[in-house]
Computed example of a mutant assay.
Amino acid sequence: MKLFPHSRIGAVALTGALALTLAACSSGSSAEPGATESGDASAELSGSLAGAGATSQEKAVAGWIAGFNDTNPGVAVSYDAVGSGGGREQFLAGAVQFAGSDAALDEEELTAATERCEGSEAIEVPLYISPIAVVYNLPAVDAEHLQLSAATIAGIFNREITTWDDAAIAAENPDVTLPATGIIPVNRSDESGTTENFTEYLAAASEGAWPHEASGDWPLSGGQSGNGTQGVIDTVTGAEGAIGYADASRAGDLGTVALKVGEEFVPFSAEAAAKVVDASPRAEDSTDKRLIVELDRTTTESGAYPLVLMSYSIACSTYADEADAANVKAYLSYVASAEGQERAADPSVAGSAPISDDLRAEVQAAIDSITAG
């Protein structure tokens, strides 16, 4: 199975995009400017560092920028949360120095990245691991989690299961009194790596119930949708009976689904997401700079949660400007560090799953290769 089939949007709409920017400010930290866990503190960093991309990373990136600026107050870092597709496009166009994406670059984008990166290979490193929550708005249901198999979720989002008391849902929730409320499936309206991961899970795990290919673009026309992660959450929150999918850090007070894995139902958690990542192989086209993981969506391992996204940080291994190379290298080193990963894992920040020590070593080696041409 091809890991990341893509359908790309042709233009990036910046109107209304959320930019996360922290102005450079002084800090009480005793660390020298420019210092990173594995970096070089020999020169003070300064200038602007712009990124764009996945809304799933938005909360984590805000935390990373704050932590990075504690020891690098001379660098003004910004992140435009326009979605994975928009971030990749801005990066390939040279509008930003790095991108966040819930899906890896496809073959056409890799060719464009070589041209953008002074003839060098793009770097793609997984630095944000998070479950994707299936969220619903059913205030009348008194259950910690509704239990749903991939096949039932596929039937719901393919608009074949249309009421919450449907026999398929009732069979998987025998102890829950289900209302006859109509189901309102909500999908992302923008091209999205979260959508791609969600449809990849449905295509792989639903045993044929999902008749569409994995894609970052929603395959069905019409229906309810929301722009970006927050748009989906807002739409589900505003309509009783609605169900959607979003990065788990945004689930809030909405109900969340426990997925059927083998013979058990597993709710999302950082630990359950990390379990799947550690058990999954690398993609065939991975390199020492492109650490692409082929997530095992059909695992039956106890306690694993297979509906997970790995969001990548995308950068150049060679930049034309020395300051860009130094700033990107230092920022990504902080994000990959134990400190950076722990900051994002804090439930008050993003509640993500930290990368393992073994993966961190590979990621840091890729980041260390960044240079100026």
Rank of each mutant, 00 (worst) to 15 (best):
G303Y: 00
A258I: 01
V277M: 05
V261Y: 00
T256E: 11
E339C: 03
V257E: 07
A320C: 09
S269M: 06
Q341A: 12
S286W: 03
L254E: 09
S302D: 15
S269E: 08
S286P: 08
A323R: 10
A326P: 03
V293F: 07
A274C: 09
L254I: 05
A320Q: 06
E264N: 06
S302K: 06
F268Q: 14
R290Y: 13
Y312Q: 05
A274M: 03
S280Q: 08
V335F: 01
A338R: 04
E271K: 07
E294N: 13
S333A: 12
Y319L: 14
D321V: 11
E339M: 03
E339Q: 02
A320E: 11
E342M: 13
G303S: 08
E264P: 02
E271S: 10
A338N: 09
A325V: 11
I314Y: 04
A272P: 01
F265H: 01
C316L: 08
M310P: 10
P281E: 14
V266R: 01
A336I: 06
L295I: 10
R297I: 11
E294H: 05
L259E: 04
Q341H: 07
Y331L: 13
E264M: 08
E263C: 07
R290L: 15
V335Y: 01
E264K: 00
S286Y: 03
S302R: 04
K275T: 15
E284V: 15
E294D: 15
L332K: 03
E294M: 14
S337A: 13
A323V: 12
V257T: 05
Y312W: 02
V277D: 08
P267I: 10
A320I: 04
V335D: 07
A274D: 08
V261I: 05
A315V: 12
Y305I: 07
T256V: 15
